[in-house]
Amino acid sequence: MYKDFTDEIMSYPGGEKIMACMQCGTCTGSCPTSHAMQYTPRRLISLIRANQRETVLKSLDIWKCASCYTCTARCPRGIKFTDIMYILKTLAWKDQLMEENKDITAFYSAFQDLIAKRGRMNESELVLKYSLKTNPAKLLEFGPLGMKMVLKGRAAIIPPSIRNQKQVQKILELAKERGGE
């Protein structure tokens, strides 16, 4: 249904301008995590344009984006690279292409489950869920910090929720059905 990977990316809000990239590297040079990336932001654009879908979507690099929007703010060609990172992550998630980064996506999906369940997020339950999904030993790591938060009165003991939780569930489900990845 898409001509190629570029076409696919361009069909999402924020992805439409990637053909205008002049490969200047301002994005990479501005990115706080590019030093740890195998494929830098600029290079990811090249890879998309070279139709290397699997290489891109399997890459851990797309999960290293901190959503700081510096690349977007500085790109001389108006490319919204942060949005492109989001698009890439959603595609990788949809096609379940992440191999090495199960831990990361486990955290994301724990968060997402929590919103679906309660409508609001709370850190204590999120950490609990995440640890159980990945490795319960993690709880030990989070333990000391968690205790401090409790002592300072900064941890919700009773999980928050909202009245019309059904509605939130419904719109999330409908969004998913619409193929709204």
């Binding site: 490969q23 200047c24 590297g25 301002t26 994005c27 990479t28 040079g29 501005s30 990115c31 590019s34 030093h35 990336m37 494929y39 830098t40 600029r42 290079r43």
Partner: peptide, 11 residues
């Protein structure tokens, strides 16, 4: 100076 050496593909 922070930049990408684009020919190296490195920050």
């Amino acid at each position: 100076v922070k930049a990408e050496d684009t020919l190296l593909g490195q920050y």
